[in-house]
Structure formats: structure tokens, C-alpha cells
Amino acid sequence: MNTYDLWSDHTSADPLPTLARMRSDAPAIRLFNPYQDAPEWWVTRYDDVAALLHDPRFSRDKRKLSEQARARYFRVTELDQLDQHVLYSDPPEHTRLRSLVGKAFTPRRIADLTPRVEEAVERLLDQAEQHDTTDLLEALAFRLPLAVLTELIGIPEEDREKFREWTGILVAPADFTALARMATEFQEYLERFLAQRRTSPRPDLTSALIAAEESGERLTPAELMSMVFLLIAAGFETTGNLIGNSVWALLTHPDQLRRLRADPALTGSAVEEVLRYCPPVKNTTGAFPLEDTEFCGVTIPAEEMIVGSLLSAHHDPTHFPDPERFDITRTPNRHLAFGHGIHFCLGAALARLETTITLNALLRRYPHLTLAADPDTLRWKDGVFIRGMETLPVTWGDR
């Protein structure tokens, strides 16, 4: 059934040729996921991925599935109490949850973080440059969003490393046992943390979420825990990879790096091109038709998962001329990296802010920043959703 081998090490390292073949062959392709032991439908063309993100016939709420379908696609039941958030809900529940969370996660709150993000970037770079060569992912790309998110949420600094371990397991679990252990430990921590915040509110996002109210409704305990889980798990890993992918893309395209150095005002446009060219999230979350549904000219059977490849959509030549070219001035650039419609990422503004500030600091401080390894030796992480490298060794050069 699966002739495309999406899950092999070779395809994981270089998925674009396989995705191009899938785009050419059919609008929707049924594959068999060897890790889930279950069928999945994949759409790879831009228009079809965008349509999938908007189509209300496909549910993201696993609670609406039959017991048999849940057992097939969601084998780690320990995650159930952490999945009751906006990413895995449908209207009207999604509308209520997003309205409640939006009151606490406002653009002004994000903009107010600018000085703290700038300070954190400078501090991390001061530490990193003590070594001639360093792994930028370890020294900066992941430490920055973890510090910002945990401070925003109110997590004590001494507990940050726990979240690094847990989110690492979540995006690339060794097996289902490791994933179940992570979910249990994460839930137990959040239960204790939220109990403390209910009795002792502080000026942080968690306390704001506890107090958030819309039409007399509040987040239930499970919804509150799930939202905090989502903000940490999704925001940390994705932003870390966006920063890493940005530096990798620029250092491996020296003409574009020179262009950006000559005109730092292009930083925002450069970040958007990274989001298209090598998005930190490569696929949509799985969605399910609750009955047999016609889509892309084929019938998707009820309760079979359907996934959209964001990475493939971003390299669809019908929407992006010369899509394999990395161009920091590309316009228009209507990528789907943060989703679309009702599921557009709440943390998009924060991810853009952190990445832009990081790139500006690197350009200003290190005019001779270079990779400290052959680009062909760098490995991309395994995992269903995340697109990012395992390491990114750099040298600072003369400063």
C-alpha cells in the first residue's frame, strides 16, 4: 500500500523528492503508517492542504471517534487529559476555548515581552560565545523559547529542564511506553502547579487563564491543564526549530545572508521565507471524517485519519514560483506554517518576535558567523510533525 516510504531515514533527511512525486501522482494518497499500524490519507498540494484546514467535515476532536478508532490512532490514553485544548477541538467548543484563551494571550501581552526577549537573547549569546564553536540549538535556539514561555506561564526556572525532556519525548518518542511516562509525569506536575496558582495567583499567563471568563464560563480543570500543556509543548519545540532553521537556511545560502546583512529591514521577510522553505511544523495534525466524505475527488472513509503536508504545500510550484529557491524577498508568500482559519496558531506572534530578535542580534554581533560542520553531515530530527535539525554547530569568527 505504501510505496512512498515517508517514514524512512532517507525520506526524513530529504523529503522533498518524495513529496513532489506524491503531488504529481494524486491529490489524496492512502498510506499505511508503520508506527501507528493504521492507514492515513495524505494531501500534498497547496490548494488541498488549505482546503483541509478549513473543511468543517473533518473533526480534530478524538472524543467524537468510536472506541475502535481511538484505540487505533490514539494508543497512549495517558495523553487524554492533556488533549482538551484548541488544537484538538471543533466548534462550538473550539470557539469557546479560543475566546477564553485569547483574553489572556493578547497581542499587547506579546509586544510587552520584547525587552525581556531581547535581554534573554543577549544573555544567552554572552554565555555561548565563551566557546569558539557551539551548538546553536543547545546554546540559544531552544533555551530562548523555553525561558520566555516558562516565565510567561509562571514555571519556576529550576523546573525548565524537565520540560525540555518532556517535549523532546513528545515530538520524537522512542516508543509508546516513553510517551505514556512523559504524559503521566507532565500531568502530575501541572496538577500541582495549577493547584498552587489557584490559591496564590501571580501576574503570569496561567493566573490570567484561571481568571479568564466569557459569558460566565471558565476553563474546566482539564481544559486549563491542556492549554498550559499545549503552550509549553507546542510553543517551545516549534519556535526552537524555527530559530534553528532560520540560521541554517541563511548560513547555507550565503547570497541571501549577504542580502540580509546589507538590509536588516528584510529580517521579517526572511523569517516568513524560512516558514515557507523549511517550516518547523511539517504536517497538520490529523483530522477525521465522522462519515464517508468526498474530498479531493476520492472518498475518505469514516474515521480514517487525513493529514496535510505543509512542507509539500510550501514547495508546490503552482503557488510558489521556483519553490526550491530560498528568497528572503519573496512576495507574495502566503505560506501555511501557522495554519489557517479557526486553527491559526495563537503563538504565531511570539514565535515571529523571538526569531526576528534572535536574527537581528546574530547579524549585529557576529559578522563572520559560519557553520562549523559540512552542511551535508547535519541530520534532521525524526518525528511526525517537527522539522528541525539535531545539532547546528557554528563558529563566531572575528568579532
Rank of each mutant, 00 (worst) to 15 (best):
A139F: 02
R164E: 09
P173S: 09
G154H: 04
A211V: 10
V117Q: 01
D132H: 12
S215E: 13
A174E: 15
G168H: 06
P115N: 07
K162C: 12
R218I: 07
R181W: 07
E122Y: 06
Q187S: 14
E188F: 06
T177L: 11
F176E: 14
V117N: 03
Q127S: 12
E191W: 03
T134Y: 01
Y189G: 09
K103L: 13
E129V: 15
R218W: 07
A208Y: 01
D175R: 06
T177Y: 04
T177M: 08
E161Y: 13
L170D: 03
F186Y: 13
Q130T: 14
A174I: 12
K103F: 07
T114E: 15
P203A: 09
L170T: 02
G102L: 02
F142K: 01
L205W: 00
S215L: 09
R143Y: 02
R116A: 15
L170A: 10
R123Y: 13
E118G: 13
A212Y: 01
G216Y: 01
L152A: 09
P201E: 01
M182C: 13
I153G: 00
A195G: 14
L124T: 08
E151P: 06
L194D: 07
F176Y: 12
T167N: 03
R198G: 08
L219Y: 00
E122I: 12
R197N: 04
E185P: 02
L137M: 14
E118V: 15
I210C: 07
L152K: 00
G102Q: 02
E214Y: 13
D135C: 09
L136H: 00
R202F: 05
L113Y: 08
K103E: 12
R202N: 06
R218L: 09
R123F: 12
I169L: 08
R123V: 14
T220S: 15
L205C: 05
A180M: 07
R181C: 11
L149T: 00
T150W: 00
S215H: 11
P156T: 04
T106A: 09
